[in-house]
Design a protein around this nucleic acid. Sequence first.
DNA 1: GCAAAAGTGTTGTAACTACACCCATGT
DNA 2: ACATGGGTGTAGTTACAACACTTTTGC
Lengths: 237, 237
Amino acid sequence: MSKTFHNYPVEQSMKLAVDAVVFGYTKETGLSVLLIKRKIAPFAHQWAIPGGFVHNNESLEDGVVRELQEETGLTVNYLEQLYTFGNPDRDPRYRVVSVAYYALVKPDSFVTSAGSDAEDVSWFAVNQLPSLAFDHVDIINSAIQRLRGKITYEPIGFELLDAKFPFSDLEHLYVNLLGREIDRRNFKRKIKQLDLLIELDETAPMSSAGRPGKLYSFNKEKYFSLKNRGFLFDMSF
Amino acid sequence: MSKTFHNYPVEQSMKLAVDAVVFGYTKETGLSVLLIKRKIAPFAHQWAIPGGFVHNNESLEDGVVRELQEETGLTVNYLEQLYTFGNPDRDPRYRVVSVAYYALVKPDSFVTSAGSDAEDVSWFAVNQLPSLAFDHVDIINSAIQRLRGKITYEPIGFELLDAKFPFSDLEHLYVNLLGREIDRRNFKRKIKQLDLLIELDETAPMSSAGRPGKLYSFNKEKYFSLKNRGFLFDMSF
DNA sequence: GCAAAAGTGTTGTAACTACACCCATGT
DNA sequence: ACATGGGTGTAGTTACAACACTTTTGC
């Protein structure tokens, strides 16, 4: 009876969306996410993470990239699938299953412009989030957890920093993400022995006071060649 | 122009499926996956991982559990979302986006029965897979990678062993999954200091020859209480 | 000269690696 | 008695954690 019903189910009626948790980082604000203010119902005039329905002939990644471009004008430099949220009632209209991604952007890409589907676009520190549409709090929290975990075994933190950065920026990033103090000397020793940094002949431009630090850049080529050889990174502290 | 099109896209036409890579393990066969032989087109009479379309009012997890039950008669004791595969052309009929899960079953649950949607159900060692329908090879390979990674920081290997097992079974499991030899004494020391095993007053039933080993069981309660306190497990070798 | 941030070494401790022999059982 | 697999300890080495003072710059 119910067996027959299962084998010949009614036509599926649900929609597939992609959403993106876009992370940015500055020393001043700490880890932040990019939110848009929705123009249309449901949850009109509420903050939400950027996203939208997948088109019929685009891949999921292409859909995320397109939606980000449309809603925020942003181009990201790191994008990874996070989790698929599919509770039947997560959208009040009808069933929407959402494939969530998370993305990392460098501080110099922070300039955004509200697109046609968004009333406003803005960055929010992750510990000062406004109330959010749908289950987007859950999505953001999953993304934060994932990011926290991932930076301990993959050097993706660099994707949140400028191309040239002082060592202290990296340290502050880790302190902020891990939520506890790190000994500067131990941190520097461990990062240096990964041998993924290029020491530049420049010093950081001054921001207030203190001794300027040497600038470094991330050796992406070396990282990928090590990674492809199956090298394991340990960036836990 | 193209903007207008993007804002009012044609109705979405795709279907959402769930698929499961079910892992089992025995000392004899090593890590194995459960496959079904498809009854219907496309890829009729070819091997595939169990799965099917999500019903309108069930969660994704419920869908996986239902499909596994229907197609293989199996109940799993560990289930985790793996990745969502959404390439537009991964199904020759029309677009099907699949949320893939992976599951672990204990050896005593190996008995399966081909359900109504499957011609046959069988276990295959992961290094002797037959040719597979759709992109199921990719899904299985992702699942293997995930499992390999995960057993180094979460004690999920126990989900592949019987409730009572000799120490050597656990060791062989790790050797098989990691693909290299492990020093027995170092392994035992490290596992024992995690303090997640209960040493039983029984010895293993004899299978061929050799000294029978003491039996252990996994302390699931302790594991969850440690995990909830944020305790980190290190099971790398 | 003082405040603010960057730079730098050492020492004790804990964890990891490498390694070989004896024991209990079945045949 | 022999073959098979289970059980156990140590020593050298390496990585980790904890710790404070000096240097360079802006104001």
